[in-house]
Design a protein around this nucleic acid. Structure first.
Lengths: 198, 198
DNA sequence: CCCGCCATGTAAAAGGTTACATGATTTA
DNA sequence: TAAATCATGTAACCTTTTACATGGCGGG
C-alpha cells in the first residue's frame, strides 16, 4: 500500500514490535520471561492498547531476536507441560533497545505508536532519559510545525489542486500542533531539572 | 505488525489504493485511461502526496479490479510501443466507488489518508456528496471526542499504568479535536445549503 | 466429561516491496 | 550515442494474518 510521506524508510533496522518485546523484557523485575507470559503482559498491560501482537508473530519475533543475538534463551523443563523458553536481554539487546529509546520519532503518525511506547518504557527504565526524549521530540515537532507553516504561507497558484494541497498542509499542521500541546502537558516537559538537553 | 485499535477490520472490502485508482479513473474527462498515464496522474497530482503506488502494484491492482468486474479494459494497438490497456469504470465499479466515497472513516488516523482522498474525489464528482461526507465525518469525530472525554473523566485507580492510559487518551483526544477543527474549517462545513444530512 | 488453560509452534495463504525485463523511440 | 520515455508486466522475496496441532491438567 505504501502510505505515508516518506519512502518506507525501513533501511535502518527492525520493526517496532521487536523493540516492544525487548522493552517488555527490559522492565521485567526478574530479567527474564517466556513467550506466553510476554503475550499476556502485552495483552493485559497498557501497551496492548497501542500495539497488538498475535501469538504466531510473537514467537516468530522472539526467534528472530534470538537468532540476531539480542536475546539469549534458556530452556526450563516442566512436567506435564511444554518446556518454557526463558528469554533475557543480551548486551547487544540492551544496546539496541537504548539506541531506539533515545531517538525521537519523525512524524506525527509515529507519535501515536512508537513515541508512546518509548515514553512508557523509558519512564520505567530511566526517567532522565525520558525527559531527554520528550524534549527532543518537542524540538522535532516544533521544527515540523514551522516548516508546515512556512509552506502554508508560501503563495500558490490558485488552481484547485494547489488549494487542496494547502488544505492537506493545514490538516497536518493542526495535528502537529495538537501533538505539541500534548507533549508540553507531559510532566517531563515542565519538570524543573538541570539535566540539559544533549 | 498489527497496529491500531481495531482488529484490522478488512473484512468488508478492498484496499484504499484500489479506490484511489477507481477514483482517478472516475475523474478522467475521457472516462478511460491506461496504466502508465494513471501512474503519472497519481505521481504528479495531489493524491501522490498522500498515497504512493509503485508501478508493480499499480498494474497488479488494475488486473485485480478488471478481474473483479469493476473495470472493463480494451486494448489499443500501437506501433513501435507496447499496446495500451485502456480501462474504464463498469457500473459495478461506479457503485463500489460511490459506496466507498459515501462512508465516513472511523479513526483519526484514517482522516489523513482515506478521508482526504474521499474529499478530493467527491468534490470533483459530486459537491453535494462532498458536503454530506464532511458533515457525517464531523458527526463521527464528535462522537469520538465525547467518548474519549467521558473515558478521561472516569476515575481510575492511580497506578502508573492507569495514569499512562489516561495520557494516551489525552493524546487521542487532542488529535481528534484538531481533526474536528480542521473539518469545521472546510467550506463544506460552513456552506449555507439546504441539502440536509442524510 | 468437556472446556479452557498452558506453551509452543507450524503451515498455508494473502498481501506488499523491489528489482528487473522488454524493446522501440524520442531527446540531449 | 547514450539516456530517458513509453507501457507493460514478472519473479523473487519478505512480512503479516489465520488457522490449526500438540497434549496433559484443573475446574465446573
Amino acid at each position: 500500500m505504501t502510505f505515508g510521506g516518506k519512502p518506507t524508510e525501513r533501511g535502518e533496522s527492525r520493526a517496532t514490535v521487536e523493540y516492544v518485546l525487548l522493552g517488555l523484557l527490559a522492565i521485567q523485575p526478574s530479567g527474564e520471561i517466556h513467550g506466553y507470559d510476554l503475550g499476556r503482559a502485552l495483552a493485559d498491560g497498557v501497551i496492548g492498547q497501542i500495539v497488538r501482537v498475535e501469538p504466531g508473530m510473537l514467537y516468530h519475533y522472539l526467534k528472530r531476536l534470538s537468532r540476531d543475538g539480542l536475546l539469549s534463551t534458556r530452556v526450563e523443563a516442566q512436567v506435564g507441560r511444554p518446556d518454557r523458553q526463558l528469554h533475557s536481554l543480551t548486551a547487544e539487546g540492551w544496546n539496541s533497545l537504548s539506541t531506539w529509546l533515545a531517538a525521537p520519532v519523525r512524524s506525527t503518525r509515529e507519535i501515536r505508536l512508537e513515541f508512546l511506547i518509548k515514553l512508557y518504557l523509558s519512564r520505567q527504565l530511566d526517567p532522565a532519559q525520558a525527559r531527554r526524549l520528550v524534549l527532543e521530540q518537542l524540538n522535532v515537532m516544533n521544527a515540523r510545525s514551522q516548516r508546515l507553516e512556512a509552506q502554508i504561507q508560501a503563495t500558490y497558484p490558485s488552481t484547485p489542486d494547489y488549494v487542496f494541497g494547502e488544505t492537506i498542509l493545514q490538516l497536518r499542521e493542526g495535528q502537529t500542533r495538537a501533538a505539541l500541546e500534548w507533549l508540553n502537558s507531559l510532566p517531563e516537559a515542565s519538570d524543573s531539572s538541570e539535566s540539559g538537553n544533549e
